[in-house]
Amino acid sequence: MKLSRMISVLAVIATVAVVAPACGSGGGQESTLAGSWDEIVAAANDEGSVTIYSNHAPANLEALKTAFESEYPGISLTYVRGTDSDLTPKVEVENQTGNGVADVHMTTDAGWIHRSLESGGYSVEVVAPAIDEPEYRAADGVLDDTFFVTSATSIGLAWNTANVPAGLASPEDLLDPRFDGKVGVVNPAGFPAVVHIYRRMDVDYGEGFVDRLAGVNPRIYGSAPAITQALASGEIWAAPGASMDVLAERDKGAPVDFALPANPIGIPFYSHVLAAAPNPNAGQVLADFMLTPAGQAALSENYIAALPGIAGTGVDGSEVVAQDIELADPETLETTAVEEYVASWEQRFVG
């Protein structure tokens, strides 16, 4: 463990000595985190279990459970999978009451991440040694010593290989008149994250890209999976904002392919160890494992990993890692801002 991380752990111990008599029965980490990393691991084994709330794909969470329990057979991992709107209220109630169930929480809700950082009290400092490994790039992946990026998904260029055998080299290719009526886009109504993606297109794909995209009369779909299926069937030929699910369909034999443009747009998954964690030491051990090569191979399969060179992750031909995917500006995700953008988008694309 690096000196800086050791100092952080010792600081927690010092805090315990001061505040322990005043601690209630909420089970917060401040009263129970062990000392050195070896002591934390030993205490985690004594706790015997750890729970994560996550909106990640079920297959990846199951793979994480298998890999973690193989590495730490004395600790049982339970994952509770749901949307951010399902899980965030649980985290808030557990924090308010001190009756914690989750030890680690993973989310893609940029607005909530920023709000929780401003208010404080939801997270504790993560002391996982894996964060100090140079390949993790903590300077780009850790927020206020608490939230740490663990994975990411990215939208990209996708096409039907029968209709577009040469593939797509850049977003500009989609504006060719031959794609008129053959491009698929997602309606952003009800999806703040999709609003973020369209906003970024006008930055990363070129100023005015969304307006020009409307000019090729794209077909409108209700979700990214619907785009993937339309590509596989040949109903549409290409999409500028397809999800990485296209890779899974390609691997199953569908006539589709996928590439990240030079400036990829995506959504990072951030995790944090909760202040109300009933198993605070096991929470730290899970946080550490998620950032190891074995943890990343499980958690980020068919996603973008937080470490380079992890087999089964990322996109062929791209060296992008999760730390390269920007967290959305929370101001653009406020309800009024989202509603205004959706109305403008629908006027351009629906008429």
Rank of each mutant, 00 (worst) to 15 (best):
K2Q: 15
M6A: 14
A11W: 12
A14N: 13
P21R: 03
S25M: 11
G35E: 07
W37Q: 08
D38Y: 11
E39C: 12
V41C: 09
N45G: 15
G48F: 04
L61C: 10
A67K: 09
F68M: 07
S70G: 14
S70K: 15
Y72W: 05
I75E: 03
L77Y: 02
T83A: 09
D84N: 14
S85I: 11
D86F: 07
D86E: 08
T88D: 13
E92H: 09
N95Q: 14
G100Q: 03
A102M: 08
H105R: 01
G111A: 12
S116V: 13
E118F: 13
G120C: 11
A130M: 11
E133W: 06
P134E: 08
P134N: 03
E135P: 03
R137N: 14
L143I: 07
D145W: 00
F148Y: 09
T150D: 07
S154P: 08
S154H: 06
G156C: 08
A158L: 02
N163M: 14
G167Y: 01
P171C: 01
L175K: 05
D176K: 07
G181T: 04
V183L: 00
A193Q: 11
G208A: 10
L213H: 05
L213W: 01
N217S: 12
Y221D: 04
S223C: 07
A226V: 13
T228A: 14
Q229D: 14
A232K: 05
R250M: 12
R250K: 15
A254S: 09
V256Q: 04
F258A: 08
A259Q: 10
N263E: 11
I265R: 03
F269K: 12
H272A: 15
L274I: 06
A277R: 00
N279Q: 11
N281Q: 01
G295S: 04
G295Q: 01
E301L: 11
A306T: 01
T313R: 00
T313Q: 00
V320E: 00
V321E: 00
E326K: 10
E331Y: 10
V338D: 02
V342I: 08
E346A: 13
R348H: 06
V350M: 15
